[in-house]
């Protein structure tokens, strides 16, 4: 069996305590919540944190609520909780689309929304979803709180703007009337995405007032198809424009080949799934 190397372990009792523990242990400390990304990496000895700060007891981070015109999802909210949250599904059906296909039901019982985002795995579903939703990530450090746009959170694969000692505490999704959908292709139930697309449309007066298009595992910069968004914004939500946006999204992403598929297929998927996600979102407007 695979087992992690030794590390020190501290259980945080509050956000302030977690931050002080992170400061105490320095850059070699890692936050652990669900552990479903970190612990397998540690078992494979690909990650060697010297200390783990366990935030599982921080009930203050485990809530989903509407506050100040935004859906606020605590970083410690489990995937299963987001999937079963009626308020989240009512405002943003895309969240349920995505959660339904993230890993499997048992992993979703343990894995957390914040953990997924902080892992910044290029194949992770929520990064594209929150980027498409233009969510804001609330980050707290010893010096106080800052808010980072989801689109600015991701620096690269497995890399975020979180500084040493900082903790993602919540995701805020501004509530505006929108339609949304997430479409994913995987090789098998529960597998990481071969590719997936997220679409969020704000429609006003027969025009796309704002649009968010996210791409998972397809080599899109910051998980977003910005050029496709630009094409759609301020025009009618027509099938032709969706098709052109899909073509643009495919042309601008830079997928890499792996055992899930070759580049040409993934590029094709980018277009195909953007079109499907846009149509699926608009289909919900009825």
């Amino acid at each position: 069996m695979q087992v992690p190397a030794s590390f020190q372990y501290r259980k945080a009792t509050s956000v302030a305590h977690a931050l002080s523990l992170l400061a105490e242990y320095g850059p070699e400390a890692r936050v652990v919540a669900g552990g479903h990304s970190l612990l397998p990496m540690m078992k494979l000895r690909l990650a060697h944190p010297e200390a783990l700060v366990d935030i599982n007891d921080l009930a203050e981070l485990a809530e989903i609520r509407v506050e100040g015109g935004a859906l606020v999802i605590g970083a410690l909210v489990r995937h299963a909780e987001l999937l079963s949250s009626a308020v989240a599904g009512r405002h943003f059906p895309i969240l349920h689309d995505a959660e339904r296909v993230i890993a499997d039901p048992i992993v979703r019982n343990r894995g957390t929304v914040g953990g997924s985002l902080c892992q910044a795995d290029p194949s992770e579903d929520l990064s594209a979803v929150f980027a498409a939703l233009r969510a804001e990530l609330v980050v707290r450090g010893l010096d106080g709180e800052r808010v980072v746009a989801a689109r600015d959170f991701f620096v690269g694969p497995y890399e975020t703007v979180l500084a040493d000692g900082e903790l993602l505490v919540a995701i805020r999704v501004p509530i505006r009337p929108s339609v949304s959908a997430y479409v994913k292709v995987d090789r098998r139930a529960g597998d990481w995405a071969v590719g997936a697309a997220a679409a969020v449309l704000e429609l006003a007066g027969g025009v796309v007032a704002e649009v968010g298009i996210g791409l998972t595992a397809l080599g899109a910069r910051k998980f977003v198809a910005a050029e496709a968004e630009d094409h759609l914004r301020a025009g009618p939500p027509s099938g032709e424009r969706f098709a052109e946006a899909a073509r643009i999204a495919a042309a601008h992403c830079a997928p890499t080949a792996d055992q899930r598929g070759p580049v040409d297929y993934k590029r094709h998927l980018a277009g195909e799934l953007v079109a499907r996600a846009l149509r699926g979102a608009v289909g919900r407007a009825a």
């Binding site: 552990g35 479903h36 019982n109």
Partner: peptide, 27 residues
């Protein structure tokens, strides 16, 4: 499986099924 894929290690933790190969005993 070591990687939380196979589920032969499922137990209830505070009433919720989890994969115990990917939970620390201290948790």
């Amino acid at each position: 499986c070591d990687t939380s894929n196979c589920g032969v290690c499922v137990v209830h933790l505070d009433g919720v099924p989890v994969k115990s190969c990917t939970v620390l005993a201290v948790m």
